[in-house]
Design a protein around this nucleic acid. Structure first.
Lengths: 231, 231
DNA sequence: ATTTTCGAAATGTGATCACAAAAATGCTTA
DNA sequence: TAAGCATTTTTGTGATCACATTTCGAAAAT
């Protein structure tokens, strides 16, 4: 039904349609432009991106495996609704997972990569100071991703991305209803710990970054926010 | 191509073909009957289970999101090969993830469920004593799953299942080349800790269960095993 | 004997169609 | 006005087909 708010995305040559559909839907879910609870139709998406059901279905299956979508008993597909319990579960898992990812990255980190982290952090600070929440959020993700992908063996990253994707829609709602997002910056602390190759300190910085950042949402605040958004 | 070793699986009424294909392939990968490195073809699978490419493709996309399959640049699909590094990464992540899952389950555990855990553990002991490795492995999974699913909020379990799935093919190889699998039983310890609702003790039991169990594979042993299997 | 080349077969991909189930709509009835 | 019912539309699903790319195998050339 509703005309999806699917911003056209850059599509490199040779990218298959189902991969493109996956990327585009993923992006839309991540920034919260598909509202939780809203149900998606295969034909609707196919029409919106001028393709056909087959590749769209593949994209939807992948996204449901990634936790971004939920398949109901009626086979209807929707973005899962957030609850205070689910939020708490997601945040605590994110903390544990990312601390571990950070620890496993430390032995592989290079000075060059640490420099890149510093640059990303600087760009994020600038985005924050000009109140560009969306960009700041993206740069925050890039900071974390750049750290964890120092580890050449990538089994954790897809799981971290899955958590981000599941938290995304709620953050989208939060950004709509909260005047100014509160950004924490434990990144500098993490960078200093990385220079010393101090695993414990890096993990501690990541833990603080998450618990003081997204983990800072009080239970009552979450329920209030969801009520405001009509969820 | 190779005739897939796809054992027919029970198919409940109303189960869609793509879900059935997913289950069947998943099972085959989990027990290692599809060899790592062997490449799968969509048409081959479709023919083997007497269906058509469309639902098989959906199943394959899900499995690749779950880490069970890897899509190569040539778009060929295969079960990823194990390496000593990947194994270490998987096991350490499994430990962290399952300790956390166990902790989050404790507040929701009931005496009835603890009783069920005791029953599963007993059945596993029996399977071990009659050297039925395959059943023992399955019951071990069921023990862990029964514990973690006490938590009604299920965001961790799919990730744990993903880890198991990625470890599965290697365990299959191990079972072929090792005369007798060494099973640890820290389950009794976990059960006692659960009766006391002692989170730390439960987590410690799970950690020990994993590090002494699958984590007991020495690096050299893994490489040796892989060489034996022609990997 | 090894490498190269060229045609045939196999394969991934995406669009289309038919079918059955589910949802929506409009009408009738209490 | 509200509830029940039948019809129509929408939707998920799975099979089939056409097309482009890749892979494979045999023959030819070095």
């Amino acid at each position: 039904m509703g005309n999806l708010a699917l911003e056209p995305l850059d599509r490199p040559d040779g990218m298959t349609t189902h991969e493109y559909a996956h990327r585009r839907l993923r992006q839309a879910i991540m920034v919260g432009s598909i509202r939780p609870g809203e149900s998606l139709t295969i034909r609707g998406i196919a029409e919106a991106m001028e393709s056909s059901p087959t590749p769209v279905r593949e994209a939807l299956r992948r996204l449901s495996s990634e936790g971004a979508l939920r398949v109901l008993d009626n086979r209807r597909i929707m973005v899962p609704r957030m609850t205070a319990d689910r939020f708490s579960e997601l945040v605590s898992l994110r903390s544990v997972l990312e601390q571990h990812a950070a620890r496993r990255a430390v032995p592989h980190i290079t000075e060059r990569r640490i420099d890149r982290l510093a640059e990303i952090d600087k760009a994020q600070d600038e985005a924050i100071s000009r109140k560009d929440n969306a960009t700041a959020l993206l740069l925050n993700q890039e900071f974390h991703r750049t750290l964890y992908t120092a580890n050449p063996e990538q089994v954790i990253m897809p799981m971290v991305e899955s958590i981000w994707l599941q938290l995304g829609p709620f953050l989208g709602i939060a950004m709509e209803h909260v005047a100014q997002l509160y950004f924490v910056d434990r990144h500098q602390e993490a960078i200093e710990a990385l220079r010393k190759r101090d695993e414990d300190a890096v993990a501690a910085a990541i833990k603080a970054d998450i618990s003081e950042g997204i983990g800072g949402f009080e239970r009552a605040a979450i329920e209030n926010l969801l009520r405001l958004a009509g969820q």
